[in-house]
Nucleic acid binder design. Sequence first.
DNA 1: ATGGTAGGGGGCCTA
Length: 258
Amino acid sequence: MKIATFNINGIKARASVLARWLDESAPDMAVLQEIKSTDATFPRELIESRGYHLALHGQKGFNGVAILSKRPLSDVRLGLPGDDEDAQARWIEARDSESGLRLCGLYLPNGNPAPGPKFDYKLAWLKRLLARARVLLTEEAPLVLAGDWNVIPQPIDAARPQAWRDDALFLPESRAAFRRIEALGFYDALRLRHPRPGQYTFWDYQAGARHRNDGIRIDHLLLSPQAADRLSNSWIETEPRDWEKPSDHTPVWITLDL
DNA sequence: ATGGTAGGGGGCCTA
């Protein structure tokens, strides 16, 4: 089972990239972030014509997450519990009924500028995520938390860590909250298989960041012990970042023996 | 210190 996470930065602007990616890379399941589309204007046909089932949590203009699956989905849940006032579409979960795998797609708040209300929202959201992860772990089943975490876990996950020193993606509070979730018993799939520096999933559009490989690793798949037991590989697919009209993120993959 | 780019929507906001 091949599973990917991909922040596509606007599904309408990325239609040709997404179509090519689905055709060539053919995930069994995928989570998408920043679709920037309501459910009503989402191009379902693009995905369903390629044989995918679709679970969707859209929002006008910003955010928006989706789960794609070659097999039927069950137990779909939209929105992260813990704050009824939170209207931002950043969390979706669903189960692959055949294997029992639960896949969660997340688009964590950016949190800049920090300090400030956006940073407070990020930290509160991380706290809610911790609570949800703790609940889901008690199922003792294969579980994957995948998405754009907007957290650079360690200095080796940035080409120029000092440039991110005061950024919400790298501040100690953000990294500590990420570690707290990991410490529940999750495994960072890419780190587990390839524990080395210089692996990035995001390059800013500005200042030739991609050309200079001035990247950061912020797109992660965290695995429950039961999922980690079945992990056969994990990798970053860098090619889509160099296609015509690319997203500023690139896909990250795992293969699970399910 | 600044400005550099991109998407969405229809006016600046978010990243």
